[in-house]
C-alpha cells in the first residue's frame, strides 16, 4: 500500500504518470471516494498521460464510456461510473465481464465499491480522501 498527497491538478497529473508506470499487467483500476473527491479528475489525468486527446467527460449518466487508446498493447480505455447503482448489481448484470476479460482494454471503475464480486486478480485499488480544500490523500493498494 502506498499513500500520496495531492494539493492540485498538477500533482494529480504527476501521480497519474506514476500510476501508469506502475501498472505492469494490471488492467482494472477501482476508484473510490466521495462526491467531489476527484475520481473523474484522476481518470482524466491518466487518460491524458496515455495520449487520449478526447475530453474525458463524466460517465455518470450513461454508466460507461469507451475511448480509443494506443499505449503498449492497450487499445481502449473503458471508463465506468457506478454512482447510480444501488449496490445490488454484479458484473454480469452490467455486462462488464467482456470489458474486464478483454486483454486490450484498460478498465477504470468509479464507485467500484458498489459492484459485488470484482475480480481481485490484476486489480489496482485507488481510494481518494478529501483532506481539505484541494488537498487529497490518495491510497493505492
Amino acid at each position: 500500500m502506498r499513500e500520496y498527497i495531492s494539493n492540485n491538478l498538477q500533482e494529480t497529473n504527476e501521480l497519474a504518470k506514476k500510476i501508469i508506470a506502475d501498472l505492469q499487467d494490471k488492467r482494472l483500476i477501482a476508484l473510490s471516494g466521495n462526491l467531489g473527491a476527484g475520481k473523474t479528475a484522476l481518470v482524466k489525468a491518466i487518460a491524458e498521460n496515455l495520449g487520449i486527446k478526447e475530453a474525458i467527460t463524466s460517465p455518470t449518466f450513461v454508466l460507461l464510456k469507451v475511448y480509443n487508446l494506443n499505449f503498449k498493447n492497450l487499445k481502449k480505455l473503458v471508463h465506468i461510473d457506478c454512482y447510480r447503482l444501488d449496490g445490488e448489481e454484479d458484473l454480469q448484470d452490467l455486462g462488464l465481464e467482456d470489458y474486464i476479460a478483454d486483454p486490450e482494454a484498460l478498465v477504470l471503475i468509479e464507485w467500484a465499491e458498489k459492484i459485488k464480486n470484482l475480480p481481485e486478480a490484476n486489480l489496482l485499488k485507488i481510494k481518494i480522501e478529501i483532506l481539505g480544500n484541494k488537498e487529497r490523500k490518495i491510497i493505492i493498494s
Binding site: 455518470t60 449518466f61 454508466l63 447510480r84 447503482l85 444501488d86 448489481e89 448484470d93 452490467l94
Partner: peptide, 8 residues
C-alpha cells in the same frame, strides 16, 4: 428511491 437512474 435509488437517487438516480439505475440502468438495469
Amino acid at each position: 428511491k435509488y437517487g438516480g437512474v439505475v440502468p438495469e
